[in-house]
Design a protein around this nucleic acid. Structure first.
Lengths: 339, 339
DNA sequence: TTGAAAGCGCTAACAT
DNA sequence: ATGTTAGCGCTTTCAA
């Protein structure tokens, strides 16, 4: 029976102090394990803490003492994105185990949404923030500067980070695939991307692929960006559209593996031979590829590792421990059966 | 260059007040749009707010005035779960648009993890919490009671909720599939579940399926619970194991669609005819099924709707508006080609 | 080893 | 329409 009209529901330090026959400060010291109390006192206090079901009030604790906030803001493009879901899982576990509370948000690839989210979380004076893109609005940059808290940019590596960066070289991951395709003899590629935001920036691995592929003498025949979220189905119908065009292409590079899987399925349904008729390459390293009879050629991203390392880097900085500003994690080109 | 040693980085109400030549209270009123100020005053104040880049301090605002906290705790089983990812996306958007800040956590189907997360978020005195399971530890129940804040249990419908519940009848969704399979003539079913937690409770839709299927005269021949997360690959190898056993089964019911898709793929690789040799049924309504040449028989869950309605219900309660305590959303049995 | 006092930034309640 | 006062629960600082 929620009663958010009443003032206070839980015991506070004073009540514990009174019950235990000591002062507020002594209780505070015991709870935070600062020294300055005897074992006997500790026991008296803890007994009352248990008995009264004391729950610390972090709002009060954080209030005024900036460094006491245990909130850490974490912003990703989409909560339903498979790859970020995996990274978040790792971030969540790591941050919590280190004694902080993650506050997760999303920006949908819209700079203004990131900005709005940032204002929202900064008004709670977090100890630090974790951002998953390299590009930010000017207001965002200003807000971050003013906040004066540690920042980790994770996912895509930034070699000149605002503060710290943990991630992989996204351009290079695409570049390698482009070169790989070129070496394998492919020369006319289609690229299939998707974004539900029209003005979205072209992903760096796509840029990298273009460079790697054209450097090797290849030509990008098509570059379709569907106005849709990356998804299995977007890859399915996007592939249909692309292959039904007149110009012949010998391979398709997909924005991610969900799309590549959709494309692969469409091709199999049409009895198009992979990789003989068309080569396919994805990006990400999606778990779903494990059930195929052929291995998808793709680039695997160490989502878990990124999450763990980025959360750890942030906490180390919060604790004023030594940390690298830039931590690169490797991606791995999986030379599968589809290209 | 983060400096979490210095005390304050941003302007506060007093500074705005001084700069604008009014009192703190007037600034406070303007910012919260409470009445009690002239248009001229408003303009003076807003000018300084802009100029000094004032960012409200919600910690101070929430401190002492319980109802001023804009934090809402949200706990799901796993952040990387596709279905919960979709629900979270909807919850996130809805909560933010209503002026609150979601604090998302996960419990991995472990009651103690939910309890730990709850303690953590309650110490931040949230305005309300959203939980995605019906079952809680005694301590969790006690904590929720003491907190005295609105609670929404979302996902699985609870007809006697702690406070409010928004979701579907999970038992019934399985029951319907069991009856459906039985009516179609299937009589010897295998059930394939997965959980990375050994002592996890059996999902209600599995229970429902068993009831519906056996009521119709069917027999559950196998019930395997893989010690793994639900995943495409778990469905793949679990199906292999199950079908390689001696006893003949004529259908498999999967814990979710990712597993069903894995199973379907395994069967197709072995040239097992679906649904003639074996019928397959999933649960959830995964987007990936859209790329198959056959439609997966499954139960579709309105993840987005659940997220939206549950977030709205909570906020309505916070605003003391009228709300239903129990909101049922429908699931839909998709009578596809695999059963 | 312990306690007392001050103050963090804001808002509710009460003036004017 | 605007200002003043008090206090939320905790921790830091200083004193005993």
């Amino acid at each position: 029976m929620p009663e958010n009209t009443t003032k206070r529901q839980t015991a506070n330090l004073s009540e514990i102090a009174e019950a235990a026959g000591v002062s507020k400060m002594t209780v505070s010291r015991v709870l935070r394990d600062k020294d300055g109390f005897s074992e006997a006192t500790r026991q008296k206090v803890m007994l009352e803490v248990e008995r009264l079901g004391y729950l610390p009030n972090r709002i009060a604790a954080a209030f005024g003492q900036t460094q006491a906030s245990t909130l850490i803001g974490v912003c990703v493009p989409r909560l339903s994105n498979h790859f970020f879901g995996l990274a978040l899982e790792s971030i969540d576990r790591t941050i919590q185990s280190l004694g902080f509370l993650p506050v997760i948000g999303s920006h949908n690839q819209v700079l203004q949404d990131e900005e709005a989210w940032l204002k929202s979380i900064l008004s709670w004076r977090p100890a630090g923030v974790m951002l998953s893109t390299k590009h930010h609005s000017n207001t965002t940059l200003q807000l971050l500067r003013d906040a004066g808290i540690p920042i980790v940019e994770f996912w895509e590596l930034s070699t000149s980070p605002l503060d710290m960066s943990v991630g992989f070289n996204q351009f290079d991951s695409g570049f390698q695939m482009g070169r790989h395709a070129s070496i394998k003899g492919y020369s006319r590629a289609g690229i299939l991307g998707a974004s539900h935001v029209v003005e979205a920036r072209r992903p760096e691995h796509i840029e990298g692929f273009i460079k790697g592929f054209t450097d090797g003498g290849g030509t990008i025949v098509h570059h379709d960006v569907l106005n849709d979220a990356e998804s299995f189905y977007a890859g399915f119908y996007g592939t249909e559209t692309m292959l039904n065009r007149s110009e012949s292409i010998d391979m398709i590079y997909y924005q991610d593996d969900t799309m590549a899987l959709g494309g692969l399925s469409w091709c199999q349904g049409k009895s198009i031979r992979i990789p003989d008729d068309v080569g396919l390459a994805g990006w990400g390293g999606h778990e779903a590829t494990s059930i195929l009879r052929m291995e998808l050629t793709t680039t695997s991203i160490p989502t878990h590792l990124i999450g763990k390392l980025s959360a750890e880097a942030l906490v180390r900085k919060l604790r004023s421990e030594r940390t690298e500003d830039v931590t690169a994690v490797p991606t791995r080109l999986i030379d599968g059966d589809t290209l």
